[in-house]
């Protein structure tokens, strides 16, 4: 039996999405932090830290519980997810609804590393902007995975 290639499948999936955009009501998505995101990860350099002096305890007492941590405590990760806004096209029909849209996200992450004595040895800040797709049908929905994992070093 012949199988459809990925481009053909994508073409078939794109058709309902285009129909939704053309026929649906555009609903703007406001800018703001994601509900589960912390808001205390600054885009500015951390002026209160000094490599070789600041300790793990100092960092934890200043920034709070980390989003991620190495099992051996050698690094802590702090991150935030901020939406810069977007739009979803929603179509209501037959008591149900479907939607497709996109949202521009900004992910910010700081990985702070420590030496064996718990003293700060390195800081790696990363900021990444990306568009994320949103697809919803009835009460279920999907969105494309984040372009930066804020709880890990990956």
């Amino acid at each position: 039996m012949a199988t459809r290639g990925a481009p053909e499948v994508l073409r078939w999936a794109a058709l309902p999405a285009v129909a939704l955009i053309l026929a649906g009501c555009p609903i703007p998505l406001p800018a703001g932090y994601e509900a589960s995101s912390r808001e205390n990860v600054s885009a500015e350099p951390l002026d209160w830290v000094t490599i070789g002096v600041t300790t793990r305890e100092d960092v934890l007492l200043k920034l709070g519980e980390a989003d991620g941590a190495a099992p051996d405590g050698t690094w802590l990760a702090y991150g935030s997810a901020y939406s810069k806004g977007g739009v979803v096209f929603v179509l209501f029909a037959g008591g149900s609804a479907a939607g497709v849209g996109s949202e521009r996200m900004e992910y910010r992450r700081i990985v702070i590393s420590f030496d064996e004595k718990g003293v700060l040895s390195a800081i790696e800040p990363v900021t990444r902007d990306c568009w994320e797709g949103i697809l919803g049908m009835g009460s279920s929905g999907e969105r494309s995975p984040p372009c930066l994992k804020i709880e890990s070093r990956e």
């Binding site: 509900a35 912390r38 205390n40 709070g64």
Partner: peptide, 29 residues
């Protein structure tokens, strides 16, 4: 997962004897 509805992170740092050395209430929002 995440910090949904969390407004503060309370951090308590103890010494080796288990006595509170320092603490902080960090605003996450």
């Amino acid at each position: 997962p995440g910090f949904l509805s969390v407004t503060y992170s309370l951090m308590l740092a103890f010494d080796e004897a288990g006595l509170l050395r320092r603490h902080s209430l960090v605003a996450l929002r």
